[in-house]
Lab assay of single mutants.
Amino acid sequence: MASQGTKRSYEQMETDGERQNATEIRASVGKMIGGIGRFYIQMCTELKLSDYEGRLIQNSLTIERMVLSAFDERRNKYLEEHPSAGKDPKKTGGPIYRRVNGKWMRELILYDKEEIRRIWRQANNGDDATAGLTHMMIWHSNLNDATYQRTRALVRTGMDPRMCSLMQGSTLPRRSGAAGAAVKGVGTMVMELVRMIKRGINDRNFWRGENGRKTRIAYERMCNILKGKFQTAAQKAMMDQVRESRNPGNAEFEDLTFLARSALILRGSVAHKSCLPACVYGPAVASGYDFEREGYSLVGIDPFRLLQNSQVYSLIRPNENPAHKSQLVWMACHSAAFEDLRVLSFIKGTKVLPRGKLSTRGVQIASNENMETMESSTLELRSRYWAIRTRSGGNTNQQRASAGQISIQPTFSVQRNLPFDRTTIMAAFNGNTEGRTSDMRTEIIRMMESARPEDVSFQGRGVFELSDEKAASPIVPSFDMSNEGSYFFGDNAEEYDN
């Protein structure tokens, strides 16, 4: 783990906690998980779902989305002020799938948001429990990260689609708070800032007046979040320049895209947490497990152990491969979309394939898809080993990566060399080191050039047997250095459309 220093740990961010010791953190995270579980059980009762239907990941996603929508204050306010045809701002819903006479049927349900809020609060001892809501947002974000390569979004903001390893959390809503900021990748933060800068260039009043003052505060806050992700002084200094700019424009845009590229080699610290679907927490609570009393951590053995003992089902389209669908969801559960496939294969105990080789589309089923041909199958979400999630980018030494994705962002704290394609990355730096950030740029390029592919990161860190909950005997895996390590390699994943 990167030293926490003055930073709060993510469990504290996750639970809005002030400084807590490890036991208190485990208890408050457990409380959050228990609340999600209780809410899910109650919703299944309301909807009269069978046990099997309640364990269907598509039903879980609909129920999670309903509660997130019920608590989305800004959108609710907007919907009330701008009524649109056929949208009731006070209601929320989605597809629920039921097994009827041996076939899967889709039923569109509609609930009062007020009623959903009441059920959620009741499951969370009367609190709004925003930490639990954020947790579900991060699960949705991790699922998107594993399912889609955001080529269009990258290109629109002047970045290269091969930089997708920097895009963790790119679909997280803005209201996801400190826990959300911690899991956002460098590219995601750059993209958010670039969008602001572009608006400022096109709209003279963007930075002016009372609204402009708020915009400015948001801009500086985002700059500080991004600065905190960088691990070298030169990158941090460049972020200070971007933040202090009187009138952010093209120079800042250039600096930010430069920094994003540099992060492929001088990786930023991005938190990883295993956020599971509500249909995993519900049955665990129903079986009598007391998360608050037992304590829970999002970055240790607990999620692995929970998945070892969970039964989750998914709808499967006619030509999809259930094992591939399982891999997709497994990666999402562990926030591992940008991790090295060699490491993932070792931990999972079966070969993890790149996205383009998977015969599976996303987990969600569109409303126009034919239910007649839908089957369902068990998702295999178990693992051979477990490993500690990392909050750091690993040290800054790398190795060759593949054509589709030119770097990785480690999820697990496991000893290995970190793949990246130096030639491709360095070719993108057209040696432009003039301007006010020239000395920093020169320094950053120097550090990137001296990074050695064969150097090892996370020295001495290994994986653990599932029986080793105290992480007492690390097993340090050895990897084939020459092997392909990137998930979005030469990829044809669908595009994420909101």
Rank of each mutant, 00 (worst) to 15 (best):
T396D: 01
I316M: 14
R461L: 11
T157V: 15
A260V: 15
K351I: 14
M137H: 13
T130F: 01
H135L: 05
G393V: 09
S269P: 10
V186M: 15
R221G: 11
D497L: 15
T215Q: 03
N247I: 04
G200H: 04
S326T: 12
F253N: 04
K273A: 02
E80C: 14
K103A: 15
Q409N: 06
G132F: 05
L256E: 10
L298Y: 06
M447G: 08
E469I: 07
T378G: 00
L466H: 11
N224I: 12
F420G: 00
P453T: 12
S450C: 06
R355I: 11
Q58R: 07
H272P: 08
G490A: 11
K470N: 10
S245R: 08
R267H: 15
Q4F: 15
A366W: 05
N142E: 02
Q398Y: 02
E254M: 10
Y97R: 00
Q415I: 07
N368E: 05
M105Y: 10
S377G: 06
P410K: 02
R261Y: 08
Y97T: 00
K87C: 03
N430Q: 12
Y97D: 03
F71T: 05
I41G: 10
S297P: 10
Q459W: 14
R162F: 01
V194F: 09
S170M: 10
L133D: 03
L47T: 13
R55Q: 07
C333S: 12
F489N: 04
G212N: 07
I57G: 01
A218N: 05
F458D: 05
Q409F: 00
I444F: 11
L56A: 12
A427C: 10
I475L: 13
V343H: 03
N142C: 08
A472Y: 13
V242S: 01
P277W: 10
S176W: 01
A233V: 05
A234F: 02
S262M: 12
A427T: 07
M13G: 00
R195Y: 07
L264P: 09
Q231C: 07
E18A: 15
V155H: 04
P83R: 11
I408F: 00
N59S: 12
A181C: 10
P283E: 12
D255M: 08
T442F: 06
Y10Q: 05
Y78M: 07
R8C: 03
G212F: 09
R117V: 11
E375D: 11
N430H: 15
E18G: 09
W207R: 08
Q398L: 03
S486P: 13
K48W: 04
D302I: 00
L61Q: 01
H334I: 09
D455E: 14
S478C: 14
E114G: 12
V285Q: 07
R441V: 08
M447N: 05
F488N: 04
A284Y: 04
S457T: 14
A427E: 10
G435R: 07
S245W: 10
M66K: 12
W386D: 04
A234C: 10
G268N: 02
F346M: 10
R162A: 05
R213I: 08
D112G: 12
V67I: 14
K48L: 12
S9W: 00
L328T: 10
Q231V: 04
L154V: 08
G393W: 10
R213S: 05
S28A: 07
R293K: 13
M440T: 10
I96F: 11
T171I: 10
D160K: 05
G5W: 01
I119L: 14
P283I: 07
R213D: 04
R162C: 13
Q168Y: 04
L166V: 10
L306D: 00
R8I: 00
N397F: 02
R117T: 14
N319W: 00
R106A: 01
N319F: 06
F429N: 01
K357G: 04
V183Y: 02
N319D: 15
I36A: 03
K227D: 07
N432K: 10
L264G: 00
M136T: 12
M481L: 08
R195D: 01
G132V: 09
I347N: 11
L61C: 04
